[in-house]
Simulated assay, not measured.
Amino acid sequence: MYEKFSRKRMIKKPIPFRRLAPNMITSGSILCGVMSLVLAFHRHVVPAVWLIFVAAFFDLMDGKVARSLGGDSAFGMEFDSLADVVSFGVVPGLIFYVSYLYAFGGVLGALVISFYVLCGALRLARFNVVHSSGNFQGLPIPAAGLFLVSFVMSGIALPSSVAAIMATTIGALMISSISYGNIKQLNKNNINVLRLLFLISCVVTISVFLREKSALAYTMIYVLSGPIGIDWGKWLSLKGNEVTDNR
């Protein structure tokens, strides 16, 4: 009897696909981060930067898939945060260090990037503990990572001192209490189509004129939107209401 009871307890129910799918997409983000790290190690920084943008796509999609399938879970949220530390914290920090801070004051450049990564980890830990609805508190780490690597993609030559100030400021923005707009839960039912079309036309125009520097322009606009007080989620929302992201 005891053996039968033990066997029954050991039998586990299969994990449903609706919970597996979002975590599989999150795994894609980690894969992109690790591959980007390998490319950066071999000084192929531009392909490494492209993989960070692919990781950002996976990061956007895992939450959408989780919500559409009803697969939100505490495990998914923790896993997503671990992926973000790798793909938007450690890897962009290393790419930025290799590109701009390698010769900055010896160990000082490494300390600057360490500060950036530490702030990113602290911001994610706060996000997981404080489940606040509405806007993000502090600059989201995906935006921070994309902002740093966009300098590399744009080919802009930053002096080491300016790069150090930039990385330190971005790190401080992540752990700040500045509110940033949340657009992750905008959908066809709650989005202002006219404003969306206007925004798309602006994106196309910027892409045509700035080309390889357009990614830097987009990320810079979002980074500055917090201190300026622009709420993109509310601006694009049909009723002007804040949206939430629970994953």
Rank of each mutant, 00 (worst) to 15 (best):
I95S: 10
P142L: 13
L173T: 06
Y100Q: 07
F58V: 04
S68Q: 13
G145L: 12
L224Q: 01
M166K: 03
A74V: 05
C32Q: 09
G138E: 08
V38K: 11
G226L: 10
L37C: 14
F53A: 06
G28E: 06
F79Q: 02
W235H: 10
E3Q: 10
G89Q: 01
S214Y: 08
C32K: 10
W235N: 05
M174P: 05
V85S: 12
F96T: 03
P16K: 12
V38C: 09
I165W: 15
M174C: 06
A172C: 14
S207P: 01
P92H: 15
V112R: 14
S27C: 12
K12G: 02
N187P: 01
L122A: 07
R247C: 01
G109V: 07
G229C: 10
W50Y: 15
I200S: 03
H42D: 12
P14S: 15
V208N: 06
G229R: 02
P14H: 13
I170R: 01
F115A: 09
A121Q: 05
L122Q: 04
D59A: 00
E212F: 02
D72E: 14
L158G: 11
R247H: 14
L20A: 05
F58K: 10
T244D: 00
K12C: 06
G63M: 12
V129R: 13
S99R: 15
A157P: 03
G76T: 04
H44Q: 15
L124H: 10
K13E: 15
L139P: 03
S176C: 09
I95V: 15
I178C: 09
S160F: 06
K239C: 04
S161T: 14
C119N: 05
T169P: 07
R43P: 03
L39W: 07
L101I: 13
R19I: 05
L39A: 09
S27L: 14
V112A: 13
F53G: 07
V162K: 01
I52S: 13
P92K: 15
M10C: 01
G138V: 08
M153F: 10
F147D: 06
N23C: 05
L101P: 11
M166Q: 10
L31N: 04
F151Q: 13
T205H: 09
V86C: 08
F136I: 00
A157M: 07
Y116H: 02
S150P: 12
A48E: 09
F127P: 00
A103E: 14
C119V: 03
R195Q: 02
Y102V: 09
S29V: 03
G89F: 01
M174L: 08
Y180I: 07
V193N: 02
A40M: 09
N182I: 00
